[in-house]
Nucleic acid binder design. Structure first.
Length: 262
DNA sequence: AAACGACCCAACCGCGGTCGT
DNA sequence: AACGACCGCGGTTGGGTCGTT
């Protein structure tokens, strides 16, 4: 048999938390901790809330050292880069930003950052279209003087022409950590450490001797496990995952647009 | 000042994996 | 081994706030 039901859904309170509820929850957890059982928590404190709701309130709002709003440019860049690379894995992204919650980052992305990027993307797109149109016109003028070639109608080179307005991938306008497929961009120490920590959390392994993201595929030659060779972001993101639950989960949930697990 | 729409964000919902019975 | 609750996560919602007309 399974466990007893966690709570009676019809008797628990929903909606915004009152300051009194917050105080009760915070003071209890400060003193006693969660006890590893969220479901039992509200009964102990005398809160008419579902354990799940308590957990969410604590993690997203009451927990110490939580930062709200005021995302820095650097945080924006980290969020964007990780989103491009791993998709909407908000908990993983949040792990890279101390004091930020997955919910906060998710909201920030959905309400502001996405628009900010799209705006930037559009500007880039327009500038690119203008440049392309200008050079094409010039090229065609040159050609028309030497051949019987006719200039296309104006509409051919304007933005409404689908030929000239393919959607750029967002990655194309990322301010930092954007990368080209085959470059050999070297990450700075902070970026390396940050990404390394992320991968370690997920079960990745690195060379002990170098303590850096360094090719160690020679070690894996005797093992069925895949080790990471991550001298570039691109390589890191195309390596195979280890036989690890989190990665299995990631692999199945990831869209192949974001990550190829080889 | 009022009405309306857009935006923001806390909280809820549902799902998949884990774990206790 | 099977069942079902628990946990953590990502997606979505709805109410409050802000800006515009």
């Amino acid at each position: 048999m399974g466990r007893a039901p966690c709570c009676d859904k019809t008797k628990v309170k929903k909606g915004p938390w009152s300051p009194e509820e917050d105080a009760k929850l915070k003071s209890y957890i400060d003193k006693q901790g969660t006890g590893g059982n969220w479901i039992a928590l509200p009964q102990k404190i005398g809160l008419k809330r579902c354990g799940k709701s308590c957990r969410l309130r604590w993690l997203n709002y009451l927990r110490p050292n939580i930062k709200h709003g005021g995302f820095s440019e650097e945080e924006d860049n980290i969020i964007c880069s990780l989103y491009i690379n791993i998709g909407s894995r908000w908990s993983i992204i949040a792990a890279q930003l101390p004091g930020r919650t997955d919910n906060d980052i998710k909201n920030y992305w959905n309400t502001r950052l996405k628009k900010k990027l799209l705006g930037k993307q559009r500007k880039e797109q327009q500038a690119q279209n203008r440049r392309a149109a200008t050079s094409l016109k010039q090229e065609m003028k040159r050609s028309s003087t030497t051949t019987s070639f006719h200039l296309p109608p104006e509409s051919f080179v304007n933005q409404s022409n689908p030929y000239w307005a393919p959607e750029l991938p967002v990655a194309a306008v990322l301010p930092v950590m954007s990368y080209q497929t085959h470059d050999t961009q070297v990450l700075d120490d902070h970026q390396q450490e940050s990404i390394k920590n992320m991968l370690l959390k997920l079960g990745g392994r690195f060379s002990d001797t170098t303590n850096s993201m360094y090719p160690i595929d020679h070690i894996s030659s005797t093992s069925s496990d895949q080790f990471y060779q991550t001298s570039t972001i691109d390589q890191m993101l195309t390596c195979s995952p280890p036989a690890n639950r989190n990665y299995a989960q990631l692999g199945s949930k990831y869209n192949s647009n974001h990550v190829s697990w080889g």
